[in-house]
Design a protein around this nucleic acid. Sequence first.
DNA 1: CGTTCATATGAACAACTATTCATATGTTCT
DNA 2: AGAACATATGAATAGTTGTTCATATGAACG
Lengths: 94, 94
Amino acid sequence: MNDGLFKCLSDSNRRRILYCIGENEMCVNNISECLGLEQSLVSHHLRELYQCGLVERERKGKKNFYRISGMEIIELLKSASKLGDSLEECANDQ
Amino acid sequence: MNDGLFKCLSDSNRRRILYCIGENEMCVNNISECLGLEQSLVSHHLRELYQCGLVERERKGKKNFYRISGMEIIELLKSASKLGDSLEECANDQ
DNA sequence: CGTTCATATGAACAACTATTCATATGTTCT
DNA sequence: AGAACATATGAATAGTTGTTCATATGAACG
């Protein structure tokens, strides 16, 4: 029942990574600088994103570049967070 | 960064509940019969869905009826699982 | 009131997840 | 070959999450 995708998107650092490489492909170091996350943490998350098929990888010299697999992913993230906002307005939390 | 929504949608039983009440509102017993889940489990999940604002609740006599807060939720689920399918085709798992 | 039905709650536990640290792998260049 | 850079991997750990069981709450009705 497609659990993997949702599980993968349910972590905010992974979503940040997706947004980050959504515009241009980036190498691991750039991503970790850009987001202020440890290199190995980024690497772990990229592995999960890759296994889900959410990102693609390409070696260029020493560096490994990652890019998003498709813009539908960003679209999905956006409409989800739009929905999230509208739900928050009439929220039931306590 | 709207973590709650994604976390909430990342569990397959919660998504099943959403689909289940997506068509008609239902009481807790019906949901648990319908999905073959324990009453208390359904209740716990409904609580989280409610706190996220994904479902609404209404008492009618002894029974508590739950309905989905809006059809955008189902739309989101559908487009997510569509995306999930297309990612699986070119998957990188092992 | 007590009983029955319907649901919610809380504690307990196992399974999973995110993060960190240390280390291994792989690539380029001298 | 060795050094330096870039990334991946694995073990360890703390925190979170899903599920179950037992029990509490609440509403209707005799």
